[in-house]
Each structure stands twice: as structure tokens, then as C-alpha cells.
Design a binder for these strands. Structure first.
Lengths: 242, 242
DNA sequence: CGCCCGTTTGAAATAATTCAACACCGGTGG
DNA sequence: CCACCGGTGTTGAATTATTTCAAACGGGCG
């Protein structure tokens, strides 16, 4: 079971394994999935609102975001995605996408036919459980985001986004203290429902408050408890991703 | 297959049937679900954040909302629920609740053991498909809400909430023109991330703009296209609930 | 070198909040 | 039967968080 260069499913399996018990057959079935690997530049659209899809994108490397466009041209990022995430699992059941998914860095994508995923789900109940858990956790994250943009101050929203990203990037490992943000301040603005200039000012404020220190997009969290407090962050909504 | 008084699953089955093909055995299996029916007053807590649950609540009559509490005492409603909704489906896979569910009117609830639901999902793939679709649509609605509170003006947020509620209440039937809101302006405020007084002013504004006319909580939509335009509402995110 | 993207800064404008008071209504109890 | 009461809705004025607009900076890259 050593991870070799071809084990593109490593991160994804590790993630699913945190959500449900998988046996050897389950793992083998996942590894047997046909998967077309491609490298794409930043800002590539992986899923487009309204389109019908026959392929599912597994994020193998790099970062992506899920977003909805407002009628006035504004956009709202509704989630960020890390390596190991199946970025459009809902197209397995709901073929017509209701939003966009876009890479925010250069990324490596594994494309899998939805039919193969569907078959996997029917044949491997454990995998189905894990994937269902995954969508439920996505739902939980969305709920937290509604709370975040709906009821928290600008400063708290940004702190919260940092907290979430830090613990998700840690992926089960502990104590996230340094994060390399893949997204621009503009992206943070679109994720928190704020203006880029206000995001900038709030980041400076968090810096002045000595809870983070910034070196461009490299952020060191110097006071994790304080950041959590400011953010009103309670990791339980992530359901033991940690 | 005539609906009798005991057919408490009518609304739920109708809803699932809109999401996936069900056969007679599927329907029979659903109807065979053990279900303990109770009437509860308004503001009853059905699911409490942090608690482990062994029962799932099916909303048979009345209305409920799903909400998260902010650390400062504020609350954010993240969705409303109508008769036929399984109000805490995620507890089937994720036993520990990450939010609250509360009735907003007197309601009739059918309590079902999660184990029975879990067994149903394992044995009836069609039902599993329908339920999965349902959770995916919930996710889509959450995404729309993130956009709503994150990027739209107060007026648009409230208009959007009205639009969504109107088409969901219509449940497949067309042209919703009159809706009886079950929630207070305070609830609307908590759902849109606004203040109760601002909600009040915006409702008045929509009234003055002649797109709705109000008689306490009874709202007649007099200009549906205009309301949709103001709301930036596009029903596709509801995925053919209509 | 020059250009573009992302970041930073300042000042003015505004949407929404806050606070406080009042009207209304159905229900409850004296 | 009336008086009171809490919850809901409404109004006004002052305050504030955030936006808007505009301009400048810096650094990586062709």
C-alpha cells in the first residue's frame, strides 16, 4: 500500500477514510476509477453555471473556489477547495451545475466520468457513506458561511476565514501556525462579502493587534487563541476534519 | 394508493418523487417507517447544537427554521422548512448536530429512528438517490443564501427571501401570488443578516414600489416579475422543486 | 524597462445600525 | 368586563461600519 507516483488518489482516500470505514476492496475500487489527469493554470473554470457535466473534477494539487455570480456583476465565493476535494460531487446526482468552480492557483485535476462514480457509489456502500458524509460536511460549512457573512463584523469574518483555512489546510494534523494563502485579498473580499480595500484594512488591523504577522500572502498566526476568539471560531462545524 | 388520514408521508413522498424515480416497493418501504407523530407549539427546539440524536424529525405540518448561534448572542437562520421536509437528515450520517432546528409555528412532527432511515437508505437505492438529491439541493440553497447575505442589498435580500419562500410553498404548482408568512420580521432579519427595523422599512419600500401589498403577515405579490428582478432571483438553484 | 496585477492609503459618501419611543393586538387574569 | 402585558410592528434621529472613488506603490514577469 506504499504511495507511489501513480497514487493520485492518496489525498482523497485519506480524506474519505476520516469520514467512514473503508476496506481494501473499497480502496481498490477507488483506485480503479478511470481518471484523466491534467494541469491547468490559475483561474481555469472547472465547472460552469448551467452546464451539464459528464466528468467530475478531483483536485489533486493547487486550490480552487466555488462561486456564484450576482446579477449586478458581483461574485460571492461560497467555499474554497484543497487537494483531495472532489470539487463537483453534486453533479453526480444533479447534472446541471448551479454555480461555478474555478482554480485560484495553477492546479492538477483528475477528471473522472460521473457514470463511473455513480457506479462506485451503488456498488460500494462504504464509499457512498463517506461521500455522503463529505457532502453533509460541505453543507455544514455553507451554514457556517451564511452565519459568517450574515452576522459577523468584517474583522471577525476575515479572522474566521483564516481559521477555517488554517485548520482545513492542516488536514488532521494539529496546531496550524503558518499558512500560505493561495488567494488574493480580492478573493477574500468575495468570500466574506466585503470590499477588497476593507479586507486590506482589517488584515492590517489583525496585524496591529498582534494576532497575525504578514509577509505578503504568507501569514503567521502568532496568537491562535486570540484569533479564534476574534473570529468566533469553533471547529466543530468542520466535523472532525481535524 | 388513495391518501387517507394515516398517510402522513404523503408530502414527503411527493417531494422525493420529484427528485428520483420511486417504485411501489420504495413507497411501501417509506410508508413502513416507524414514525411517532407529535404536535408541538411554536418555538420548540427539535434539534439542539452539539446533541447526539437517535431520531429524525419529519415536518408534517407547520414551519421550522434551521439556525446557528453567533458567539455574541446573535443568531443566523440558515434555512426555512416546510411540511414534507426531513428537517435533520444529516444526523443519519453525522450524529452530532452542528446547529439548531426550531419550529416557528405550532407544528406536527413525525419522529423516526435514525437506524430505520439508515436501513432504508441501504436497502432502497432509489430512496437513497432521492435523499441524496435532497441534501444536495439543500446545499445549493445554502450557497444561494451565502450569496444573498454576502453580496445583495437589504432590499434585494428580503425580496429574494420572499421569492424563495413563495416558490417553495407552491411546491411544484405554478404562479405563487399570495403567501402567508409564518415568520416574524425578526425572523426575516435573522435570515437576511439585517436588523428588524431595517426589515420593516424595506418591506414598506417594496410595498410603496407596488410589487407587494401587505396585510400584517399576509403578502400579496402584485408584480412577480418586478419582485424577481429586485431580488436577483433565478429559481434554478432550487433544482426543479418547481 | 515598462507594464500589470495586487496591495496600500486617504477622504467623502452611504447603507444599515442603534437606541428609544410608541401603537397595536390577542391573550390572561383580576 | 376591563386592565394589563408581552410580543410584534412602526417611526424618528443620531451614529457607525463599510463602501466608494481615486490615486499611488511595489514587485514580478514578459
Amino acid at each position: 500500500m506504499a504511495t507511489n507516483d501513480d497514487d493520485i488518489f492518496g489525498a482523497a482516500i485519506a480524506k474519505l477514510e476520516r469520514l467512514a470505514k473503508l476496506d481494501d476492496q473499497d480502496r481498490a475500487a477507488i483506485r480503479a476509477l478511470p481518471c484523466d489527469v491534467r494541469s491547468v493554470p490559475a483561474n481555469s473554470v472547472l465547472v460552469r453555471n448551467g452546464e451539464e457535466t459528464t466528468q467530475c473534477a478531483l483536485l489533486l494539487g493547487g486550490f480552487a473556489c466555488r462561486q456564484r455570480a450576482a446579477g449586478d456583476g458581483g461574485r460571492q465565493i461560497v467555499s474554497f477547495h484543497l487537494p483531495g476535494d472532489i470539487v463537483d460531487l453534486q453533479t453526480v446526482m444533479l447534472p446541471r451545475a448551479d454555480h461555478d468552480v474555478q482554480t485560484i492557483t495553477p492546479a492538477k485535476i483528475g477528471w473522472m466520468p460521473t457514470t463511473a462514480l455513480r457506479a462506485l457509489i451503488r456498488e460500494r456502500p462504504n464509499v457512498a457513506d463517506a461521500l455522503w458524509c463529505d457532502t453533509l460536511i460541505d453543507g455544514s460549512i455553507y451554514r457556517e458561511w451564511v452565519l459568517n457573512v450574515g452576522r459577523r463584523s468584517a474583522r471577525a469574518r476575515i479572522a474566521h476565514m483564516l481559521c477555517e483555512f488554517a485548520v482545513r489546510a492542516a488536514a488532521g494534523r494539529s496546531a496550524p501556525d503558518r499558512i500560505q494563502l493561495p488567494m488574493t485579498q480580492n478573493d477574500i473580499a468575495d468570500a466574506t462579502g466585503l470590499t477588497p480595500v476593507h479586507v486590506n484594512r482589517m488584515l492590517q488591523e489583525l496585524d496591529r493587534m498582534d494576532v497575525i504577522v504578514r509577509d505578503k500572502r504568507d501569514i503567521r498566526i502568532t496568537d491562535w487563541p486570540a484569533l479564534q476568539r476574534i473570529a468566533d471560531f469553533d471547529a466543530r462545524y468542520l466535523h472532525a476534519v481535524a
